[in-house]
Amino acid sequence: MGMFAVNAFLIFLLVIIAVVALNVHRLFALVMLSGAFSLTAAAQFVVLDAVDVAFTEAAVGAGISTVLALATLSLVPREEKPHAIAPLPALIAVATGALLMVSIGDLPQFGAADAPVHIHVAPDYISGSEKLIGVPNVVTSVLASYRGYDTLGETVVIFTAAIAVLLILAGWTRAPHLRDGETENTHIAQNAQDREDGQKDAG
């Protein structure tokens, strides 16, 4: 019961952080809230027995993602233009959420040991981990051995993303020397305006 209370409290805390994040206009505060969200989620993962997921979320979600966001913020404006609540997207979100909530009725009871997900392959992984792989941490043996190809695919995705970031930030399409506050003048409309102004000055 105590565990249930901690679980219920942490997930409620996540909702509060998400609502505040949605309403804050300073992007630095927003990024910090995003880090806090990931860290609270990591605490919740510990309560739900997912310790490996918890430390990955804390290191990657709260750590690396926040660093990436701060690096971006050093190069872009730090204020969000205030927005009123957009009715159509709000309606879509509420309708989607309502549909998902209706479908919760079909899910097995939270924490039930006889749910289909627990009686298919998981018992084999748990019983085989020590005997076949020799690793007491079942998550490690599934990740690196039983489903090693998934992890290989994951490294391919990371490699592709790294190439994409390098091409976007250092590729040939990037103007080499932009001074602070300067933007690439690639806009036809702006260039035409500049030409007009130049002709006026000449004439």
């Binding site: 027995d49 997912a50 997921v53 979600g61 990436l68 627990h118 998550v139 990740l143 994951e154 990371i158």
Partner: peptide
């Protein structure tokens, strides 16, 4: 033991998410 399979899937998803 809680089910390890979702944990493994989500570990992969976290790393792909940061990419």
């Amino acid at each position: 033991y809680s089910n390890p399979l979702p944990h493994v899937l989500i570990l992969t998803a976290i790393v792909v998410g940061v990419a």
